Every structure is written in C-alpha cells, then in structure tokens.
Simulated scan of single mutants.
Amino acid sequence: MDKKELRRHLLQKRKLLSPELREAFSQRACEWMLDCEELKKAKVIMAFHPFGEELDILPFVEEVRKRGGEIWLPLTISAERRLVPYRYDGPHMLKQGVYGIWEPDPAKAVVMDCSRLDAILVPGVAFDLRGGRMGYGAGYYDRFLDGLSHSHRPFLLGVGFSMQVVDEVPLEPHDILLDGIVTEEGCFHS
C-alpha cells in the first residue's frame, strides 16, 4: 500500500471509531502520557489541539498545566508552510486556524523559543514502532522538527490510536524518527 492509500485507509478506519470509544481510548492514552517518565521530567511540552477524529489529548494538557508544567501549541502559517509555537494559557487565547484547528491567537499569545522545549507530542495518521510517522501530507511537522537544534533535541512522542500503528511506515529521506508513540495500549519507545 502506498502512502496515499495508507493515509486514506487509516483516516477512514479512525473515522469509524464511535465517540464513546474515542473518548475512552483518549482517556487511557492521556493516563499513559501522565505516567511516561520523559513527559514527567519535561518542564516545557509542545502539544497540539486535537481536531476531527484525532485522539483527544486535552485532559493531559490540562493536567500538566495544573501541575505547573508549561504547554505550547503550534500556530500554522500556511503561506510559509511552517509551525510557530506559542505558550498556551487556556482556551481564551485560541482562534480557529486555516484548517479549522484551534490555534493560538498571536494577539493574545507569546511566541516561544524552541531551545526551551523538553518534549513534543506529534500528531499523525500512521506510526510504526521504529519511530516512523506519516502525517497528513503537508509536511508542517517534518519541517518544524528538522529545524530544531540538533544539540538540544526534545523527546518526540507520536500520539494516536493503536489502529494507527502499522508494521512499517513508508519513510522519505527527510522524515524525522520519533522517540516513541503513545496509544490507548501504552507508551512505546522506538
């Protein structure tokens, strides 16, 4: 199955999850993330605001903030095809972005310095246990991850449902490998 077919197949499969199962699986994955050593140690975590049928990580985000951790969310700048991280201080500072995703409103948020990042939660369509990830096809995360300083590389954790884990994600030379993946079944290191 090529990338395009695999993406279509997995997105369709994910769409068929009932809202009840999606909520139960999301809750379990959030518990695994709260238990993950690398995320427990992380003071600054870049997350994402789930949209569509993605796993809902907002309970994790709120718990980290409650415990004093710093959460950042990316703003998509589609004209430049890049992500810019902003500090997340609550839903009041969000607006709907180009793809309908809730993102930081630059008028209400502070842009952050990536050298402070300890961990990044990375959404995707498909993952494998070697650290492979396939996104939605626009390459925003690939460019963002590639632009991070190699001297201080944050812990990269893919986030998805177990149905999104495949034997092998077709990788391109520019793809950045993740350090692990979390699903409702656990947190797995690559």
Rank of each mutant, 00 (worst) to 15 (best):
A47R: 05
I181S: 08
L171A: 11
R81C: 13
R28T: 15
I71E: 03
S149F: 05
G158Y: 10
G90P: 06
G132Q: 02
V64G: 02
E185A: 08
E184N: 08
I101Y: 01
V166H: 00
S78V: 11
F25R: 14
C187K: 00
F188W: 11
G160M: 03
W72E: 07
M46T: 10
G90N: 00
F51G: 00
F127S: 00
V44D: 00
K95A: 06
D105R: 07
S115A: 12
G137W: 03
E103M: 02
D56K: 09
L129V: 12
R14E: 06
S115F: 06
S162I: 13
G131Q: 01
D105I: 04
D118Q: 04
L34Y: 02
L73W: 06
K66V: 11
L55Q: 07
L16G: 14
L58S: 07
V110K: 14
L129S: 10
P50C: 04
H174D: 08
E53W: 02
L21I: 13
L148E: 04
S151I: 11
H49M: 02
I181L: 00
A29Y: 02
A109F: 05
G135P: 09
R67V: 07
G131N: 04
M163C: 14
P91E: 12
E20K: 06
V159H: 07
E70F: 07
F155D: 08
S18D: 08
P59K: 08
G186D: 03
D35K: 14
G137D: 04
T76S: 12
P170V: 08
L177G: 09
K66A: 04
R7A: 02
L145Y: 09
L16P: 15
P19D: 06
C114F: 07
D175Y: 05
M33R: 11
T183M: 04
S26V: 09
V169P: 02
A47V: 09
M33P: 10
P85K: 05
Y136S: 10
T183Y: 00
H152W: 12
G68W: 03
F48W: 01
G132Y: 07
G131F: 03
E62C: 13
P91S: 13
Y86N: 08
S78H: 15
H9I: 12
I45E: 04
A42F: 02
K108R: 13
G135A: 00
Q164S: 05
G69P: 09
V159E: 10
K41Q: 14
G52K: 11
L58T: 15
V61L: 05
R14W: 02
G97A: 05
Q96C: 08
